[in-house]
Amino acid sequence: MAAEGKSIDALSQFELGTALGPLGASVNFTQSNLHMVIVAALIFALMSYGMRARALVPGRLQSLAEASYEFIMGMVTEQIGHEGRRFFPFVFTLFMFVLFGNMLGLFPYAFTFTSHIAATFALAAMVFVLITVVALMLHGKKFFGYFFPEGAPLWLAPIIIPVEIVSYLSRPISLSIRLFANMVAGHVMLKVFATFIVMLAGLGAVGPFLSLLPLTINVALVGFEVLVAFLQAYVFAILTCIYLHDAVHLH
């Protein structure tokens, strides 16, 4: 799949195909869906198996489960405030889903479902609907005051209101594009340098030595991608928290 002939084929890794043989094909169950199910199962396994011992001095898995819980709990209370705790399950699910999706995508033969705008936009749209519904439920009509700051001169309203509405509507777009673009860019780079390894290795006697260069870069890139995978999940979660803060407090 990597190097076919002399061309670099960096995008075929994002192609969707059906998984699970003829059964999956008949219901259009793609490998993207399969990886989402795997991620959900992994998170469930981590949480239920890791917390089974309930030891006072946690083991490795229990520490991992507790650390992720504490991490998101801290983020939610710090960003939204005390009343933000009721959004903890949502933010936690979102964070773990994106994080595990990013991380699972780094394994060989795995598919990164977060590299598809359809998947990330679905998540971002969910956040968008939630923040709008929460703001409407908590503040009612006052929510629409969000689009026109108090104290601004009234004759500016025809400019400010559309700009604010566009700015508000751009939230799910930027949220989804950020995650998807980072994942696509990282995986394309990995694939391009991996193709260089194969191509340079075929350059006669010096080839194998030359191909050490892209190999080194790829090793560094994988480390970098682990960082990006975590960071993007973190950014996704914290921006959700910031938007929820805006929805709960309206500025």
Binding site: V166, S167, L169, S170, I173, S174, I177
Partner: peptide, 18 residues
């Protein structure tokens, strides 16, 4: 820098599509 770019791009996209 990337975040700022994404913000501009997405707002522009929403405006143009709308």
């Amino acid at each position: 820098g990337f975040r700022a770019g994404v913000e501009v791009f997405s707002a522009l996209l929403v405006g143009v599509v709308a």
